[in-house]
C-alpha cells in the first residue's frame, strides 16, 4: 500500500461516519445500567436511549438528526438485559448505515429492535435466570455451607461477572460487525438448541440439588430395642434417601402448575415446618 493511497482512504473515511472502538466500549460500559430507569409503560426505554448516547453523539453532529435519534430510542423497549448487548450491536451497525445514508430508515431500526427483543428474551430468560444463576449460586452456597467460607461468595461473584461481561462484549461486537446477518443466523435454530441444552443441564442439576441441599428429616423413632433404635428417617433412607424433599418439591411444582402463587407456597411450607416440629414429626 502506497502512502498516497493511505491518505486518500483516510479522507474517504472522514466523510463516512464510523463508530470508533472507544465509542463501542463506552456503549458497552453504559449497557450495564440499562434497567435502572425501568418504568411503566415504556419499560427499558430511557435505559436504551442512555446507552446509545455515545453513538448518537458520534454519528449525528446535526441537531435535527440527533433529536430524531434520541426520540427513536426513547420508545418502548424491553428484553433480557444481557441479550440487549446483541440487539445493541446490530442497532449500532444500522445506526451507522443510517447516518451514512446507506438506505436504512428510521423505521427499519425501530422494527429491528422490536423484532429481536421478544424472541431473544424468551430464549435468554430461562438460560440466565432459570439455569445459570440458580446453579452457580446454589453451588456457591453449598461451598460456603460446607466449610469453604468466603470461597463460595467469591466463586459466584467472579464466575457470574466474568461470564456476563464477556458475553455482553462478545455479542455487542459480533452484532456490530455482522449487522443484519445476525438475524438470519438466529433464525437457523441455534438458539433453540442452546436453550434445550441449558434446560437439560438445569433440570439434571436441580434433580441433584433437591436431595443434597435440603436439610430436614423425619424425627420419630418407630421401633426401639435395647441395642438399637430404628427411626422413620433411617427406614426411608434405606428406600431412597432424599425422598421427603423430592415429594415436597414435586408437590410445590404441581401447585405452581395449578397457578398457586409462590407466596402461598412459602406460607404453606412455613406452617408445615412449624407444625411438623411442634408435633415432633420433623427436625
Amino acid at each position: 500500500m502506497t502512502y498516497k493511497k493511505g491518505v486518500s482512504e483516510v479522507e474517504n473515511e472522514q466523510k463516512l461516519r464510523t463508530l470508533t472502538l472507544s465509542d463501542q466500549l463506552l456503549v458497552f460500559s453504559h449497557s450495564g445500567l440499562e434497567q435502572a430507569a425501568w418504568n411503566y409503560p415504556r419499560l427499558q426505554n430511557l435505559g436504551f436511549c442512555y446507552l446509545m448516547v455515545p453513538a448518537i453523539r458520534r454519528l449525528y453532529p446535526e441537531k435535527a438528526a440527533r433529536i430524531q435519534a434520541a426520540q427513536r430510542h426513547l420508545e418502548l423497549f424491553n428484553t433480557m438485559p444481557y441479550m440487549q448487548s446483541l440487539i445493541t450491536g446490530v442497532t449500532l451497525s444500522l445506526e451507522e448505515d443510517h447516518a451514512n445514508g446507506k438506505g436504512v430508515s428510521d423505521n427499519d431500526i425501530r422494527a429491528l429492535k422490536v423484532s429481536m427483543m421478544g424472541s431473544l428474551a424468551g430464549v435468554a430468560d430461562p438460560v440466565w435466570w432459570g439455569t445459570l444463576r440458580p446453579i452457580l449460586s446454589a453451588f456457591a452456597a453449598s461451598l460456603a455451607l460446607s466449610g469453604f467460607g468466603i470461597v463460595g461468595p467469591l466463586v459466584f461473584f467472579i464466575g457470574w461477572n466474568v461470564a456476563r461481561l464477556s458475553f455482553r462484549w462478545a455479542t455487542q461486537r459480533w452484532g456490530y460487525l455482522q449487522g443484519l446477518k445476525v438475524v438470519t443466523f438466529l433464525s437457523s435454530g441455534v438458539l433453540q438448541k442452546l436453550t434445550l441444552g441449558a434446560s437439560i443441564v438445569g433440570m439434571f442439576v436441580m434433580g441433584a440439588i433437591v436431595p443434597r441441599w435440603t436439610r430436614f428429616k423425619f424425627a420419630p423413632i418407630i421401633a426401639s430395642s435395647q441395642h438399637a433404635s430404628l427411626s422413620l428417617q433411617a427406614m426411608l433412607d434405606q428406600l431412597l434417601p432424599g425422598l421427603l424433599p423430592l415429594v415436597l418439591t414435586l408437590v410445590c411444582v404441581w401447585l405452581l402448575r395449578h397457578h398457586v402463587k409462590p407466596l402461598w407456597l412459602l406460607l404453606g411450607v412455613f406452617i408445615l415446618g412449624l407444625g411438623g416440629y411442634w408435633l415432633g414429626l420433623l427436625r
Partner: peptide, 13 residues
Amino acid sequence: VSAGLLVVVSFAI
C-alpha cells in the same frame, strides 16, 4: 425447620 424447608419452593419455581 421452616428455614430449611423454604428452599423447596425456590427449587420448585
